[in-house]
């Protein structure tokens, strides 16, 4: 069995990749990918701690299930927003969308 630290390092690596994508990408779909990667790193953390902490190892899994369901809702709404933006502007570059605020 691997130690807690190894799993946390994977989670950190995925989180770093997600942050990189969130900062550097301009395509709205890539941003959604980044958010999914970030959120999965968080869910992995929940399951890891629920397995390695001695006393309560059920609640972490329950929260992971809730988290996955929330992320599914988030992905559905996000993709619908991208579709609407594409239909209105024919483009999903988030830097181009800044003019929406004016």
């Amino acid at each position: 069995m691997e130690s807690l630290l190894q799993y946390l390092m994977i989670s950190v690596a995925l989180f770093a990749i997600g942050v990189y994508g969130l900062v550097s990408k301009r395509n709205a779909i890539r941003l959604l990918f980044s958010v999914e990667i970030l959120a999965n790193a968080g869910v992995l953390n929940l399951v890891v701690f629920s397995r390695f902490l001695p006393a309560t190892n059920v609640i972490g899994q329950v929260f992971a299930l809730f988290g996955i369901a929330l992320l599914a809702a988030e992905a559905a709404v996000g993709l619908a927003l991208i579709l609407v933006a594409y239909r209105i502007r024919e483009d999903i570059d988030v830097l181009e969308m800044r003019e929406l605020k004016e």
Binding site: L4, F15, Y20, G21, V23
Partner: peptide
């Protein structure tokens, strides 16, 4: 993006290496 991602990764990684989390076994 590369700088930001590396900063987050290295910061969290160092933080965890300085704890006793490595000795926790399931």
């Amino acid at each position: 993006g590369v700088i930001g991602g590396l900063a987050v990764g290295v910061a969290f990684g160092l933080l965890m290496l300085n704890t006793t989390l490595g000795s926790v076994i399931a």
